[in-house]
Write a protein that binds this DNA or RNA. Structure first.
Lengths: 348, 348
DNA sequence: AATTAGCACTCATATCTATTGATTGCTAAA
DNA sequence: TTTAGCAATCAATAGATATGAGTGCTAATT
C-alpha cells in the first residue's frame, strides 16, 4: 500500500506528539490537536493500516500508538517541518562564536558546548581525519637533556603533544637546523603523502635519520589513533534528563557507551561529502548490548576547510527538527568565522 | 558517655556490613556475623545507646541501623582495618605503570584510570598548584605570521598550550634570541616569583616588552585557572552502579556536579602536606543542592616532587579501606617510578 | 549490675482484589 | 468512504489484608 497524504499527516502527528511527550498518542488526541477535520474512527482505521505497514506500534492493546524507527526515518527524510530558531537561541549561539577562535579544537569544543546547551542533549565532536592536512612547517624544540618537543604546524591546526627522546649531547642549534631541514622536506606535503614510505626523502634520512623516524612515527600514531583522544563530549548528564533513560540500567549502558570513546568514534564518522548525517536506531552499526539511540552529526567547515564533525547523540525520540536547525545554523556561522588563521596560511 | 571497646566493635560491624550491602543491619545479623558471643538483646541495647550518641540511625522504627557520617568518621580515623590488595589488584596497578611515563598529565591520567578500575568508583585527578614550579627554560616558536607558541618548561612539567599574537615581520631568529633572553631571566625562578610584579626584569622589558607581557599573562591565566581544564575524570558511569544513585534524580545531580569541573576543583584541593585526605559528607564545603558524597584524595609525588592529587568521589558508603589501600599503594609505586625526567632536571 | 529471653508493637513491603478509565476494534448506519 | 456507537481489553490505581523483619521494654537470670 502506498502512503497517502493523509497517512503522512498522521505519521507526522504521531511523531511530533511523541517527540515532546514521550507518551503513546490516541486517535482522539490526533483529532483534537492535529486533524480536527477527521473523526477519531477514521483516524483509527488509518492508524491500524500504518501499524500493519510497520510505521507504528502499540505498547499494549488498549494504548495509543508510538512511532517506530521507520516512522522517524520517513519523518526526517520527508515530513519534518523546517524550524526557525528563536531569537534567544540565536543569541546564545552567536555569543559562543563572537570572539576570535584560532585553534580547531577550541572551535570544536565550543561547538559541542553550544549544541548541547541548546538541544539539551549530549553532544559530541570529533576531530577530522588528518590524512589530508597539509604540513606548513615542523619545529623541534629541545626541552631538556632527554627530550625534545615536536611541533607540527598544518593547515588544520597545530599538533604539539609529542615528545621524542634525544641524545643529551645535542644542543639547541642542532634542532634549529634539523627543524629547517625537515620543515623544508615536509612543507606543502599532506600527512598522507608523508606517511607513504616510498616517498621518504633520502638526504634527510642521512643527516637526521633518528629524528626523522621518530617524527614519522609520531605522525603515524596520531593518524592511526584517529584522534581518539580528541573526541569531545558535552552534557553527558543530560542523557539522564530523557525519560527513556529513567531506568538506571539503560542510562548506565548509554553512559558507558559514551565513555568508551573508541567505540564511539566509528559511529560518528560520516561518509565523505555528507554535510548532515542522521542515523536512527539500526542505522548505527552497533554490536549487541548497545543501547538504542540516534545520532545526528554535521560536518563543519571554516572558510571551506573541514574541521571535523559535531552533533548530538540521544534517544531515538529526539527533536530532529530543532537539532537539524541548530547544526545547520552553526554550520553557517562557522563558515564566516572571523578569519581563523589556518586557512590564511595556505593561501600564502 | 565514652565509647567502650564493645561499642566500637559494633560500629565497625555496622559500617563494614553497610559498606557491602547498603542495607540497614539488624541486631540479629550483627550477632550472627560479627559478635556471636553477645545476645541480640545486648546488642540492641548498645545500638540504642549508639543511636542516642549520634553514630547510628534507623530509617524507620522497625528497621535495622544505618551508620551516620559520624560513624564513618570514627571508622576511617580509628576502626578501619588495614586491607591488603589482592595479587590480581597489584598486577593491574603495576601494569599501568610499567612503562616509562614522562609527562605529568600522563601519569595523572593513568593514576585516575587505575584507581577507577580497581575501586569501581568514579575517580578524579587534579594537577597541582603551579605557583611553586621552578622554571627551567622558556621557548617561543613562531608558528605562522600571526602567532607563536610559548613553551614553558618547569620541573613539574611542560606548559605548551598557549599561543601569542605576533607582528608578522618578526622572523624565526628573533624568537630564538627572545627565548634565550627570557629563558635566562626566568631560569631558576618559581612561577610565584615571576608573577610578583616588582621583580620584573627591567632589561628584558626594554627589548621584548610585548612578548614579555604576553608571557606573564599566559602564566597568570594558567595559575589562576588552577588548571581547571586539566582535571581528569575517569569512570563517571560507575556512579550509576552505586545503589544510592538508583534514583535517577540523585544520579543526575551527581553527574552534573562532576561535569561542572570548576565547582569540583575546590572540593579536591587538600591542605598542604597532607598525603591522604578523607572528606565525608559535610566535610565537603558544598553549597545547597549539592549531592551528598565522600571524597578521598591522595597527594602524589614522583621522586619527591608533588605532581598533584588523585582519588575517588562517591557515595558516603564506600569501601574506605580498599580505597585507602589502593591510593596508598599507588603512592608507593609512583615514588619509585622509573626515572621520570622532571626531577632529574632539577638536580643538574 | 549486666545480660538475656520473651513478647507485644511498629511499620515497610508484598499480595490480592476491585475499580477505573483510556483506548481500541468492529459493526452497522449514514 | 466515513462515522457513530458500543463491547472488549488492559494498564494503572487504590484499598484492604497479610507478612515478617526488627525493635523496645520488662522481667527473669547470671
Amino acid at each position: 500500500m502506498a502512503i497517502s497524504g493523509r497517512k503522512e499527516k498522521i505519521i507526522q502527528a504521531v511523531v511530533d506528539s511523541y517527540i515532546v511527550s514521550c507518551e503513546p498518542i490516541s486517535s482522539a488526541e490526533i483529532k483534537e490537536n492535529y486533524l480536527p477535520e477527521l473523526s477519531s474512527a477514521t483516524i483509527r482505521n488509518e492508524l491500524a493500516a500504518l501499524e500493519e505497514m510497520g510505521y507504528l506500534e502499540q505498547p499494549h492493546t488498549s494504548s495509543g500508538r508510538v512511532p517506530t524507527a521507520e516512522a522517524y526515518r520517513l519523518y526526517v527524510d520527508k515530513l519534518m517541518p523546517k524550524r526557525k530558531l528563536s531569537k534567544n537561541e540565536l543569541k546564545v549561539i552567536n555569543k559562543y562564536f563572537d570572539h576570535k577562535l584560532t585553534e580547531i579544537d577550541e572551535i570544536l569544543k565550543n561547538t559541542a558546548k553550544v549544541i548541547s546547551e541548546i538541544t539539551n542533549l549530549t553532544s559530541v565532536a570529533v576531530i577530522p581525519n588528518l590524512t589530508g592536512a597539509v604540513v606548513e612547517s615542523v619545529k623541534i624544540v629541545k626541552l631538556n637533556d632527554k627530550s625534545a618537543l615536536v611541533i607540527l604546524v598544518t593547515n588544520l591546526g597545530v599538533l604539539k603533544d609529542a615528545t621524542v627522546e634525544i641524545a643529551s649531547s645535542l644542543g639547541d642549534e642542532y634542532f634549529v637546523t634539523a627543524s629547517n631541514f625537515i620543515s623544508a622536506a615536509f612543507h606543502g606535503k599532506t600527512i598522507g603523502e608523508i606517511l607513504e614510505p616510498d616517498k621518504l626523502i633520502e638526504e634527510i634520512k642521512k643527516d637526521y635519520e633518528q629524528l626523522f623516524k621518530a617524527i614519522i612515527k609520531i605522525i603515524k600514531d596520531y593518524v592511526e589513533n584517529g584522534g581518539v583522544g580528541d573526541i569531545v563530549l558535552e552534557g553527558s548528564a543530560k542523557i539522564l534528563g530523557q525519560p527513556e533513560y529513567a531506568n538506571v540500567e539503560k542510562a548506565r549502558a548509554m553512559l558507558e557507551l559514551l565513555e568508551a570513546k573508541d567505540q564511539l568514534v566509528p559511529m560518528l564518522k560520516s561518509p565523505e561529502n555528507v554535510s548532515l548525517n542522521i542515523k536512527i536506531g539500526k542505522d548505527n552499526e552497533m554490536g549487541k548490548g548497545m543501547p538504542e539511540c540516534a545520532i545526528v552529526t554535521a560536518n563543519y567547515q571554516v572558510n571551506g576547510v573541514s574541521i571535523g564533525n559535531a552533533g548530538v547523540i540521544g534517544p531515538i525520540r529526539m527533536d530532529y527538527s530543532k537539532v537539524v536547525s541548530v547544526l545547520d545554523y552553526i554550520g553557517k556561522t562557522l563558515n564566516v568565522l572571523p578569519e581563523a588563521d589556518h586557512d590564511e596560511k595556505r593561501k600564502q
